[in-house]
């Protein structure tokens, strides 16, 4: 494989490698912000971290609705997710009733990226 071919190669990485995230809760509604470490990777997030994929990721928790708000100025986006907390902080049986750990469930989602874009 030539150097050029190797760089053009498409690879799969967890979001954790190119983005950071924070979870917040209000009632039974969770928000997950997501920001590209490198603003050049923002478009990858826009293309691949869709409402449908986040809905699928959290389907087992009874998620009823996922909305995504794009924040290009911040190279980021905000997901607003309903009914994922199974009762919220004062109603859940989950150890983490706030859903604070769920930002790292999102960061485990896989995305495709050109090896060249990762700077390897």
């Amino acid at each position: 494989m030539s150097q050029a071919e190797r760089y053009a190669e498409r690879i799969t990485v967890p979001l954790h490698q190119i983005a950071h995230s924070r979870a917040g809760d209000k009632g039974d509604r969770l928000n997950l912000s997501l920001f590209a470490y490198d603003p050049r990777h923002y478009e990858i997030l826009v293309e691949q971290v869709t409402e449908a994929r986040v809905q699928a990721l959290l389907a087992h928790r009874g998620t009823s609705c996922v909305r995504r708000y794009l924040m290009p100025n911040l190279a980021g986006m905000n997901f607003v997710i309903d009914d994922v907390l199974q009762g919220g902080v004062n109603g859940a049986l989950n150890l983490d009733g706030h859903g604070k750990t769920l930002s790292f469930l999102l960061l485990g989602m896989e995305v495709e990226i050109d090896r060249e874009q990762l700077g390897y």
Partner: peptide, 28 residues
């Protein structure tokens, strides 16, 4: 940036008792 969107829903309509905040054009 992480704290800016913490517990925010629609960033163009962040509801508070005294004002509805619009973060659409925010820069950090």
């Amino acid at each position: 940036k992480e704290q800016l969107l913490y517990e925010v829903h629609d960033p163009a309509n962040y509801l508070t008792p005294d004002v509805v905040v619009d973060l659409s054009a925010v820069t950090v």
